[in-house]
Nucleic acid binder design. Structure first.
Lengths: 348, 348
DNA sequence: CCGTGCACGGTAAACGATTTCTACGATCGC
DNA sequence: GCGATCGTAGAAATCGTTTACCGTGCACGG
């Protein structure tokens, strides 16, 4: 192994060093530093604190975690760290949980099952107290099996898991009702008079894509509108994908509105349509999903269904706090909401 | 302390358990699991591997890190995890460094000195091998002092630090030439014929804001253009700030172009100006800085100077790799580039 | 036939904390 | 005046690894 200490490394400051300087035992120093309930005389405490200060002592969390079997750390899995969706969510999580002295470590899987597993294993090995699935599951049989056995093992050893997404992993969860949110948008469009509604789906290997597409189909049928496969295209949750999908849909069908399964694709669609000479919303309406921070600043301010990302994170943290404290709280439920801006209007 | 093991926790699988099952010593198991250079007979190795597999053994990284004094972990400090700028950068860093078996832990300071210090201390306590400052320094004397002593201590104990931003911390660094990039945009606008150029600055407590503003002033003087304080406003690097600043500038002066110190503010400015009835770029040009992923999909596709964020991360990772391998590489230098889109034109 | 060297495996001492158990003096109740 | 209690502190075991140091047994060269 190439793991040797660098030769320059000065001695690190341990409990022992502090103990020697303060002329007490390491036990006493530990008690002072970790605010143990074991009593320590005021005068001794002061001596210890002074010595610790003087040496710049920082308790080694690794050693501490090793003996307590608690690392005060939670691992978060996201798909793409540069996606503002996850950014908001992690922020909510963090703002809330840091008050309890926990640290968040976030890892990005890039939607690669292999990579996600690798990070999951790393989190396990670093003994995080909780595992948070902020990212939707991947639709892959091998992945599913591996994640399940890993999570089982993790939980059987006292770890807790929290799910903030569309995921098969069990345990505590904050639910966002994709079905209802999707239906709400379909209803909104239908109420405006749209009958030919195009739909841009996410990548097929993401559970959330499947859920939103199914919800779309059901909502359309519910309203007695035909679910026309010519009006459905895949846009892989990206801007470029949204462009391609939108052009494909207007080429093959004649929608009066296009509903994209996320804002990024809606923005791509908007741009492509605009560049192709369509006026939005006069010629065609475009609706998104998520209400990402920049949705308001899209080429046309985007009408979309808001996913309360930050709140999902915050609610997750609240759940986490309770579970960590040994309680068994109920799941949290959050719903979407239509945000009306300028990209949707009645059909002509 | 509230750190007791949960009562449900099944026994964890340690080296010892594997050793017992395989009927060898823990040393042998360790040698097999950590691919030590110490020879182990093929037959023994197989037995160990089988036992480890059967028990679902995962070496405890905490314990490992404790003895090797290497955690195979790097801590990254960013300002705002939901800012795509940092997302891209971290992605570059991660894509490159993960090949070497390192894990990235990212923490978000929210531009709060207190919080940043707290995370820095946590990273130190978790014994990260490297500290990466992806975020610009904060302009605060106390913060500066604390960070400096912390970094000194960290380095004197063998840690390495890497700077990817405008920061006073020394050590290895990948430089982005803000001055040249800013000047390039000023030149570009001036060449187009703009003489009254407004400027929207970032928050004053960020080092990078100061650098870009100074660079703007110098570049203007260089071109013989007057630096008019009526045409400068603060926009705090946010969309809302950009809106406010833009309106303020057009209220007090008569710029033919506005240059914002980041894209977010440029987008805010664009939207505000558009809503106030200005045509862009016909009535007024707007330029940004960063070329964030959505700059192309702003209300008007944004002309901006591209900061190669992903590459900054990647270059940082290759530096890291070399330093970790014991070398002493030269700093990396990256430059900006004007991206022409539709938000800038000749003045009327 | 014996010393050398190598392959292989075990023992035990770290790493830096926490925590249980024990010890010792002082105070207190009776 | 004596046992009980309390406040305070230290010794030592422990967490799960790595690794320096030994001790075998066997092959091989001289």
């Amino acid at each position: 192994m190439s793991n040797r200490r660098t030769p320059l490394a000065r001695e690190r400051v341990s409990l022992r060093a502090v103990a020697e300087l303060a002329e007490v035992s390491v036990a006493t120093v530990s008690r002072v530093m970790s605010q143990s309930s074991h009593p320590v005389a005021e005068e001794t405490r002061k001596r210890v604190l002074a010595a610790a200060e003087r040496l710049g002592f920082q308790p080694n969390q690794l050693a501490r975690a090793l003996v307590t079997a608690r690392s005060q750390t939670v691992g978060v899995i996201v798909h793409d760290i540069s996606d503002p969706y996850f950014g908001e969510l992690v922020k909510g999580l963090e703002d809330e949980i840091r008050a309890d002295g926990y640290r968040l470590f976030v890892a990005s899987s890039d939607r690669d099952p292999e990579r996600e597993l690798e990070y999951l294993r790393a989190f396990e090995a670093y003994q995080v107290d909780a595992l948070v699935f902020a990212a939707s599951a991947l639709e892959d049989a091998a992945y599913r099996h591996d994640v399940e056995t890993l999570v089982d093992r993790f939980e059987s050893r006292g770890g807790i898991t929290l799910v903030l997404s569309d995921h098969f992993v069990g345990g505590h969860k904050v639910h966002f009702d994709n079905r209802a949110a999707t239906a709400a948008m379909v209803d909104y469009l239908a109420d405006l008079g749209h009958r030919h509604i195009g739909f841009i789906t996410g990548p097929p290997d993401l559970t959330v894509s499947r859920h939103r597409e199914n919800a779309f189909r059901e909502a359309m049928e519910q309203r007695g509108l035909s679910y026309d496969t010519d009006l459905v295209a895949e846009g892989s949750f990206s801007i470029e994908g949204g462009k391609r999908a939108a052009m494909q849909i207007v080429d093959t069908g004649a929608p009066t509105a296009i509903f994209a399964a996320n804002d990024l694709m809606a923005i791509g669609a908007t741009r492509a349509l605009l560049d192709a000479g369509y006026r939005i919303p006069d010629d065609i309406s475009v609706a998104g999903f998520d209400d990402m921070p920049l949705a308001e600043y899209a080429p046309v301010p985007l009408t979309t269904v808001r996913v309360p990302t930050y709140d999902i994170g915050r609610e997750g943290a609240v759940l986490l706090r309770q579970i960590l404290a040994g309680q068994d709280p109920d799941d949290a439920y959050l719903t979407g909401e239509i945000i009306e801006r300028r990209s949707v209007a009645r059909p002509r």
